[in-house]
């Protein structure tokens, strides 16, 4: 699409009133392609914000079904949806609420063995949201984005601790400006116990992280985002945010491999 309809001018007028977004930014949102992996507390809200903002092309990935204990924080679903795949419910609801939305609903579990096959379904412009609930999946998604040069927007929360970052792995940066990846931050052998199912979580705290993910995503699409490679940590108890630059681990084999591939492409 290269021009908005009259209805879209009215529908998205508040977004376009922002000087740095305008009609160009709104068209970028409408023409964007998004993959959301994990349709739990984070993903179900990210997809709603993005669809409401005008995103039309979604790939939604989650093998999980709606359960009763999801409902306090996963507002896209209702009791009538219990037992149904989350991505199927999301597709149905989004198609009802928003016109011309295309949803590719995938109920396969993304794993290390199928990640290469999965990557063929994405193009270089696909914006990837990691909204999963486990460490293994997060490493697989990180690997996918590093190897494919994609932009990754990752959020996580457990108990009162939230974490968020956005890295554009396709950006050509000088050596000193290169960001670390998820593996540079958390090596694969890290001992992790903080998941929502083990530690609990408050629905609105999940919502804060999901809203931030959607906000970062829209800013990236509109070329207004500047905080790439910055880890944001949110304490939902004290309501404080902390920032840190994500440095590359010079011993990260994933980053080294991607760098070598980059050199090979340039040659």
């Amino acid at each position: 699409m290269n021009a908005l309809t009259d209805k879209q001018y009215i529908q998205y007028s508040r977004t376009m009133l922002l000087n740095d977004i305008g009609e160009t930014g709104q068209l970028a949102i409408i023409n964007s392609q998004v993959a959301i992996i994990g349709l739990g507390g984070l993903g179900q809200l990210v997809v709603q914000y993005l669809a409401a903002a005008g995103v039309k092309h979604f790939m939604l990935v989650d093998h999980d079904v709606v359960a009763l204990d999801n409902l306090p924080r996963q507002l896209l679903y209702s009791e009538a949806d219990i037992g149904q795949h989350k991505v199927s419910v999301a597709k149905r609801t989004l198609s009802r609420l928003y016109s011309n939305v295309y949803v590719n609903a995938i109920t396969d579990k993304l794993t290390e063995t199928n990640v290469i096959e999965f990557s063929k379904r994405l193009n270089t412009e696909t914006l990837v949201f990691d909204c999963t609930d486990n460490f293994v999946a997060r490493h697989v998604i990180n690997q996918l984005c590093v190897n494919q040069g994609l932009t990754l927007i990752s959020a996580a929360i457990s108990a009162y601790q939230g974490q968020l970052f956005c890295i554009d792995f396709g950006a050509k940066l000088s050596h000193e400006k290169q960001h670390g990846c998820y593996r540079c931050l958390y090596p694969v052998d890290i001992d992790i116990k903080q998941t929502c199912s083990q530690q609990g979580v408050l629905g609105p705290a999940v919502g804060v992280m999901a809203s931030m993910q959607a906000l970062v995503g829209l800013q990236h699409i509109c070329n207004t985002f500047t905080q790439y490679g910055v880890l944001l940590r949110f304490d939902a108890l004290t309501l404080q945010w902390h920032q840190a630059k994500m440095n590359r681990d010079q011993q990260c084999t994933l980053c080294q491999q991607a760098q070598l591939q980059g050199y090979a492409h340039e040659c």
Partner: peptide, 19 residues
């Protein structure tokens, strides 16, 4: 503190475990 279960930020920069 559990070495295998944490990440560290020093002066607003992540310090990778290898360092």
């Amino acid at each position: 503190l559990p070495i295998n279960a944490v990440a560290i930020v020093v002066n607003d920069e992540v310090l990778p475990r290898s360092r």
